[in-house]
């Protein structure tokens, strides 16, 4: 029979108890800190404006409010999108772009004269349909799913798009 000394037995019990207590204390703290990993992505359709506000052939900037912003979020809960009206109606009616450049996420600017999206950070350039015209972007602009409901244009909420998505 394996015998262990009283001292060793007690020290092992102490270690085990300490680890147990540490786990009980540490688990909620860790869970709280890592909570953003477990929050469900927003997947709501939010209205961005009346369809007649978007003339055919034009690209306009719209602002979307986070559906459930924190009370102290202020302007930070607003997200900008570029809405391009392509046709009068039908499935090709709109193209909704995230404002983020596909290189590193800076906000692109629509230059109506040149018909190009320009990124201020590293010179990324996109055509009006979102495809890359030049610069470092590895892929076309991120697009949002949209729906027409009555005379309103709805856009699906989405996490911050990254180069690995879509």
């Amino acid at each position: 029979m394996n015998e262990i000394s009283r001292r060793r037995f007690l020290s092992r019990i102490t270690l085990a108890l300490t680890a147990f207590i540490g786990g009980i204390v540490g688990f909620p703290i860790l869970g709280y800190l890592l909570a953003p990993l477990f929050s469900a992505p927003t997947d709501e359709l939010v209205p961005v404006g009346a369809i007649m506000d978007f003339p055919v052939g034009e690209t306009k900037l719209v602002s979307v409010r986070d559906p459930s912003p924190l009370a102290w979020a202020g302007q930070t809960a607003d997200t900008a999108l570029w809405v391009r009206r392509r046709e009068q109606s039908g499935p090709q009616m709109f193209q909704v772009f995230n404002v983020n450049c596909t290189h590193l996420g800076c906000p692109v600017n629509w230059q109506a004269g040149a018909k190009l999206f320009l990124c201020p950070c590293h010179g990324g350039v996109f055509y009006s349909d979102g495809t890359v015209a030049g610069g470092p972007p590895p892929r076309p602009l991120f697009e949002r799913e949209w729906q027409v409901s009555g005379d309103r244009l709805l856009v699906r909420q989405q996490p911050l798009p990254t180069v690995k998505q879509g």
Partner: peptide, 10 residues
């Protein structure tokens, strides 16, 4: 973790 959620927000 960096944006503390799905988007930069509150």
């Amino acid at each position: 973790l960096i944006v503390a959620g799905n988007n930069v927000g509150g």
